[in-house]
């Protein structure tokens, strides 16, 4: 690990200013992903600003009947919150499908959104990777790509967003709240939060340097039945090959987002509208224009089958 200086921030504006002032500075909350990457020197911050004391650790009701989740609420506490289990079951189910109990106890809501890709070429500093070293090329294209993206990818990068929580948040139309060093606040729909790679895959999200996530808000509950179907190589503690987050209403309408397939949770609203016509209709629309590799083409029929199983369960 490269040497860095460390400070424990006392207030939000001070934290944002400290990171905005130094392009090589980073916020640290749970640290479960950042420290992992710092150990292999994929991440090399020179200064860490610890945000654990900033008080964003509560889940509160909003005036319009939704929930405001503090950025520092741990994955465990978010999944266990009674309101979340009752009204946003897809979110609890997505969280407990991810990582391990130990990691969920430490990982924060904001950190989960900011976790980086698990593309093996991103982690291997001997390999070309445009995301780790812009302009160096992409060893994953033409390499081992079974886990990697099938849609929304580019000629620069075919990595996927690895999280589960955000896939459920995409179905729920969550909004990411931020504040920057000047005190400017932003509300970013989760749909726009993670970027498509294009030719700048080094930038995962639309956040600016020093812009701090303070909360994630959920609109009022959708009702319906909530599902998170995760297909993976092991029964537990493995990344999704494909995951399906869905909220299905009694009349068969609903919403669906897919994980493990794209640089961000993949939801196409026009495909949602096809839910009453069955899984194949939905995935044909949601994955229109997909560019799978020979190794990961299986993800397309797998997504259809995973969704078909969710729809069947909703009807049962």
């Amino acid at each position: 690990m490269r040497a860095f200086t460390y400070e424990r921030a006392k207030d939000t504006s001070g934290a944002a200013r400290a990171v905005a002032a130094n392009p090589a500075a980073k916020f640290i909350a749970g640290g479960t992903n950042l420290l992992d990457l710092m150990k292999i020197e994929v991440e090399t911050p020179t200064h860490l600003v610890d945000v654990q004391d900033l008080g964003f650790d509560k889940i509160e009701a909003t005036r319009d009947g939704g929930l405001r989740i503090g950025a520092l609420v741990t994955n465990t506490n978010l999944a266990a919150d009674e309101r979340v289990r009752r009204d946003y079951g897809v979110l609890t189910r997505a969280i407990v499908a991810g990582a391990s109990g130990q990691l969920r106890n430490k990982a924060s809501t904001a950190g989960n959104l900011l976790q980086r890709t698990r593309c093996p070429y991103f982690y291997d500093t001997n390999m070309a990777c445009n995301k780790r070293k812009p302009g160096s090329g992409c060893a994953a294209i033409g390499g081992y790509s079974r886990q990697l993206g099938v849609i929304g990818v580019s000629d620069s990068c075919i990595a996927t967003f690895p999280g589960d929580m955000a896939v459920a948040m995409r179905v729920l139309d969550a909004v990411v709240e931020t504040v920057d060093a000047t005190g400017q606040r932003r509300s970013i729909p989760i749909a726009d939060f993670h970027r498509l790679w294009g030719d700048t895959p080094q930038q995962d999200t639309v956040l600016k340097q020093g812009e701090l996530i303070t909360a994630v808000t959920l609109p009022k509950p959708l009702g319906g039945k909530h599902y998170y179907e995760k297909v993976r190589d092991r029964a537990s503690y493995a990344y999704a090959l494909v995951s399906v987050a869905a909220v299905i209403q009694p009349d068969g309408t609903g919403r669906v987002a897919f994980g493990g397939v794209a640089p961000r949770p993949w939801r196409v609203e026009a495909a949602d509208a096809l839910l009453p016509r069955g899984a194949a209709a939905v995935t044909a629309r949601a994955f229109q224009g997909a560019t799978p590799t020979k190794d990961n083409a299986f993800k397309l029929p797998l997504a259809t089958r995973a969704l078909a199983s969710v729809i069947a369960e909703a009807k049962a």
């Binding site: 424990r8 640290i28 640290g31 860490l48 130990q102 430490k106």
Partner: peptide, 15 residues
């Protein structure tokens, strides 16, 4: 009171 991976946490964060 909760379990964590002590390898993925900085000691200075545990003041």
């Amino acid at each position: 009171g909760v379990r964590i991976n002590s390898c993925l946490s900085l000691a200075v964060m545990h003041e």
